[in-house]
Design a protein around this nucleic acid. Structure first.
Length: 431
RNA sequence: GGCCCCGUAGUUCAGUUGGUUAGAACGCUUGCCUGUCACGCAAGAGGUCGACGGUUCGAGCCCGUUCGGGGUCGCCA
């Protein structure tokens, strides 16, 4: 007999069907038992009549297979129920659950416990909702970029040297040579632009060996990267992201309404995202709150204040912060035409958190070499990268979106770890 | 890594000025109940109060050390 997902049972009223799933809840009325059976699509009420007829031990989270009659029943929560005729226990919990996944709108357990029992905690619908949304974010990212002529690529995660010199790298032993986990696909996606692909994107892991231990940092995260050639300027890159986000949010509204409401989240609107030079943002929060910013940057409180300022004055939960100083950006950042101490770069803040970094890159070979030297780095260390710039590299730029950060902000989560299935942080390497 | 806060039942937490037998809710076990839907009712089990040391007649409570967790800052995206 073919298994029917619980969300399709209404199409099978009056038929005998096979359903499989987990016991979500048991209501023992003596002569009759009501089970709420949960599968990947939802839940259904299963009715067991006749007490000892089903000689099956039942506990929450038991994996079950049930054959029964689908009945239209006004007394059932969803209007239909399954009258069990045969029950087969597929797998019985070996231990009592460390927390209940069928109680209430939120899972009552600390983050540490949740991650220690990740496979179980993800059975809670609220936690599961986060990752359905995340999957749709990635889907929308892919679909949109493919339609815009981007090619999906996969670049190495084991590399010989770092990208930007700054961030800490995880060393790995690569046979007889030292190597590192890639902190970014930056070099490779630029090279592929120059390789004639023009427009590339990647959904891949990035690794940062920073010792940070905060609610917005992971040591392994998923980077939604894109890079595009033949741009007229950094505005083209911001325009692509603006359009991408508008379509992404629209996609979520259409496909994840249930998950969004289960999380109590509100999807943002995406209009024309304001673009504000860094110095202007710094001045605004200084004037409004007396907030001093670090030189050439915003600190976490500054990001929150700038977001609040833009939301109040421009009605946008998103804001591009532009024109970061050369000293605060990597060597490949394109200096601004108007002011060579600034760059054609941007960060995107969403609800008070940086979710994207992007910019135009230096495409001229000699200029790039000079920039590397100015940063105190050795061009010899970047030979394979520089080679791509020798033979007609077009003007280009791109960006990287932190998937977990975007997910976190869209879902209204307090900690970025909650937006990672199996987070890797300063203290956690398992599961 | 700095600073601040917190470690009490399986879980989330309360616990008064240091005082006798450490509580609640949910979960768990057993029994009753044929329309529940957070089912209900009755009974019950469950604690080295993170660990070690100290102060005290007496420590869950005060002090020190240590381990673990959370927040925040730094760094970073």
């Amino acid at each position: 007999m073919k298994r029917i997902p619980t969300n399709q049972l209404s199409n099978h009223a009056g038929e005998q069907v096979l359903v499989k799933g987990w016991v979500n809840r048991i209501r023992d009325m003596g002569g009759v038992h009501f089970l709420v059976l949960r599968d990947r699509t939802g839940t259904v009420q299963v009715v067991l009549e006749g007490g000892g007829l089903f000689n099956v031990a039942l506990k929450p989270e038991t994996a079950l297979s049930v054959v029964g009659q689908v009945a239209v029943e006004p007394r059932a929560p969803s209007g239909i129920e399954l009258r069990a005729e045969k029950i087969e226990m597929l797998s019985f919990p070996a231990e009592d659950l460390p927390f209940a996944v069928n109680q209430g709108a939120t899972l009552r357990a600390g983050l540490d416990l949740i991650f220690n029992h990740r496979a179980l905690s993800l059975r809670h619908p609220r936690l599961a909702a986060v990752f359905r949304i995340q999957a749709e974010i990635v889907h929308a990212f892919r679909t949109f970029l493919r339609e815009q002529g981007f090619t999906e690529v996969h670049t190495p995660k084991i590399v010989a040297a770092g990208t930007e010199g700054g961030a800490e790298l995880f060393p790995v032993r690569y046979f007889e040579r030292p190597a590192y986990l890639a902190q970014s696909p930056q070099f490779y996606k630029q090279m592929l632009v120059g390789a004639g692909m023009e427009r590339v994107f990647e959904v891949g892991h990035a690794y940062r060996a920073e010792t940070h231990d905060t609610s917005r940092h992971l040591n392994e995260y998923v980077s939604l990267d894109l890079e595009m050639g033949f741009i007229d300027g950094v505005e083209d890159v911001m325009a692509v992201e603006n359009k991408l986000l508008a379509i992404l949010v629209e996609h979520l509204a259409k496909n994840c309404a249930r998950e969004v409401s289960r999380l109590g989240a509100t999807l943002p609107t995406v209009g024309q995202i304001p673009r504000v030079p860094l110095f202007e943002a710094q001045a605004a929060i200084k004037e409004r709150h007396g907030k001093e910013s670090p030189r050439g940057n915003l600190d976490p409180e500054g990001e929150r204040l700038v977001s609040r300022w833009i939301e109040e004055t421009r009605g946008s939960e998103w804001v591009f912060i532009t024109h970061y100083p050369v000293t605060e950006r990597p060597f490949y950042a394109m200096p601004a035409l108007s002011e060579p101490e600034l760059t054609e770069s941007f960060d995107l803040l969403f609800r008070g958190l940086e979710v994207t970094t992007g910019g135009q890159r230096i495409h001229d070979y000699r200029r790039l070499v000079a920039s590397i030297c100015r940063f105190g780095l050795d061009p010899g260390d970047f030979e394979f990268y520089l080679d791509a710039f020798k033979y007609g590299m077009p003007p280009h730029g791109g960006l990287a979106i932190g998937l977990e950060r975007l997910t976190m902000q869209l879902c209204g989560l307090d900690n970025v770890r909650e937006a990672s299935l199996f987070p890797r942080d300063r203290n956690r390497l398992t599961p």
